[in-house]
Design a protein around this nucleic acid. Structure first.
Length: 302
DNA sequence: AGGGCACCTCGGGCGC
DNA sequence: TGCGCCCGAGGTGCCC
């Protein structure tokens, strides 16, 4: 659920809250979260006395920088951070607590217990999992159209599973893949090697436009909040395909359909996103769709 | 390589 | 109407 826009929103919020705070003590209620080191006592001892400097992001991973240490954190489905006072009641599913010297705490909550944390000496996090094999960062300067073409070239994989593969491009999850493919007018079961260059360009622009708009909106609300400051994002109101099964497509009016692609719930407009078997029909009647897509893209990227 | 499942919990939907 | 069970939700890793 937390994809790039949600993780970026958490990063920005945490970056206003925790730099300068010094860890006095760490409580680990669920050792499963800790991947490295996996011994809670070692994990706590390494962090105690250290001070948060900044919070950065790589794909869907948060990098919490301390003096000399980097805590790499993945929220997976439902991981959440919040800053609390020491005497605030501890809510259910609170698995890790970083007690600060100023009477406040950073708490990690995770109902599904899927999240992970890796602790490294700063700089060493890039050589090992989970950061060592990540793909292009889509909102960075390295994500040029040429780099995108190289990353997806010669692949016969379905485009949706490919876009979900974090070793190719980072940050896209099920929601924003469906949104980007809908915006680009591309069916999720098309394979990369069947996409024409013009379609690849539409997709490239759609990925950037979708993620950029979602970051601006503070992500899609997954009932996450930081420091009890309420609902996080507003982008869920702007979704055009994801979660809109049975509702009319805003471009053409056909009803959004739900299926399964690569084991994921998938939402498409069967008119705007022609399947692999009727691409010839799509080629025969490209004009209205292409113009509509271009208008939408031009509106979003500027 | 790509598909399928496991990981985990909650809540919604459905059946009785 | 109420209770209880089953399954779906999804990011990633691992196995085949």
């Amino acid at each position: 659920m937390p994809e790039l826009p949600e993780v970026e929103t958490v990063r920005r919020t945490l970056n206003t809250l925790i730099p300068g705070k010094t860890i006095r003590h760490v409580t680990v209620n669920l050792p499963r979260i800790l991947q490295k080191p996996d011994d809670p006592a070692v994990f706590a001892a390494m962090l105690e006395g250290h001070t948060f400097q900044a919070v950065e992001r790589r794909g869907k991973f948060l990098r919490l920088l301390l003096d000399g240490l980097t805590l790499v954190s993945h929220l997976r489905m439902e991981g959440r951070y919040g800053v609390y006072r020491d005497d605030d009641p501890v809510e259910a599913h609170t698995h890790i607590i970083f007690h600060f010297t100023d009477g406040t705490q950073l708490r990690y909550k995770d109902v599904r217990q899927f999240g992970t944390m890796h602790l490294f000496a700063t700089g060493e996090e890039w050589q090992d999992p989970p950061l060592n094999k990540l793909g292009l960062e889509p909102l960075s300067e390295e994500f040029t159209f040429e780099a995108f073409l190289r990353a997806i070239s010669k692949r016969s994989t379905k485009i949706k599973p490919m876009l979900l593969n974090q070793e190719i491009i980072v940050g896209l999850g099920n929601i924003y893949v469906d949104e980007a493919l809908h915006l680009a007018g591309i069916h999720p079961e098309r394979t990369a090697d069947t996409l024409k260059k013009a379609e690849k360009e539409l997709l490239y622009k759609a990925i950037i436009a979708t993620l950029r708009a979602a970051v601006e909106a503070g992500g899609s609300s997954v009932k996450s909040y930081v420091n009890g400051q309420g609902e996080m994002g507003m982008f869920q109101h702007l979704l055009k395909a994801y979660g809109r099964t049975g509702e009319p497509c805003e471009t053409c009016g056909r009803l959004i359909e739900k299926s399964v692609v690569g084991g994921r719930g998938t939402h498409i407009c069967p008119n705007c996103q022609k399947g692999p078997k009727n691409t010839s029909r799509a080629r025969a009647l490209p004009a209205p769709k292409s113009n509509a897509v271009k208008r939408r893209l031009d509106g979003k990227t500027k």
